[in-house]
Amino acid sequence: MKRMANIDILPMACVGLILVLTMMILAPLVMTHTQTQVDVPKAHTSEIKTEENLTITYTIEGRLLVNDIEILPEELDQVVAEELARDPYQLVIVRADKDVLHNDVLEILASVKKVGAKRIACATKRPKDD
């Protein structure tokens, strides 16, 4: 009986598995910008958009971060404009702490709108009873 030559695909399967695991770990880190802990308000009607976005974080201490990089408030217009220049339809998410003043958040929203953001969302989390 003639023996058939076969290829050992086990190493390839192992490499594939490792790639899947690496992708699973890295994807949330690369695609989201929520490393800075902020206690966002709760809402029942929030929508989830799984797409690349520009995240502006405003903490209770008054720190302002764009995609987890801290910036000065006066730099916000320029930084957001640079990001939006690449994709004007990019979703802009404002993650503000629930205890900050709404007027401060309005200032951020107004700046974002002024530089041309088309889609803006306020980040929320779902209540646990949902």
């Binding site: 399967a13 989201t32 966002v40 929508e47 976005n53 998410i93 929203l109 929320t124």
Partner: peptide, 28 residues
């Protein structure tokens, strides 16, 4: 091995939306 990989991929697809921020869309 294929079963484990497939389970991991399905788990990944199911859990990835949880990592994304949810929000309320507003007119600025």
């Amino acid at each position: 091995l294929v079963d484990i990989a497939l389970s991991l991929v399905i788990g990944f697809i199911v859990t990835i939306p949880l990592f994304f921020e949810s929000g309320i869309f507003v007119n600025a």
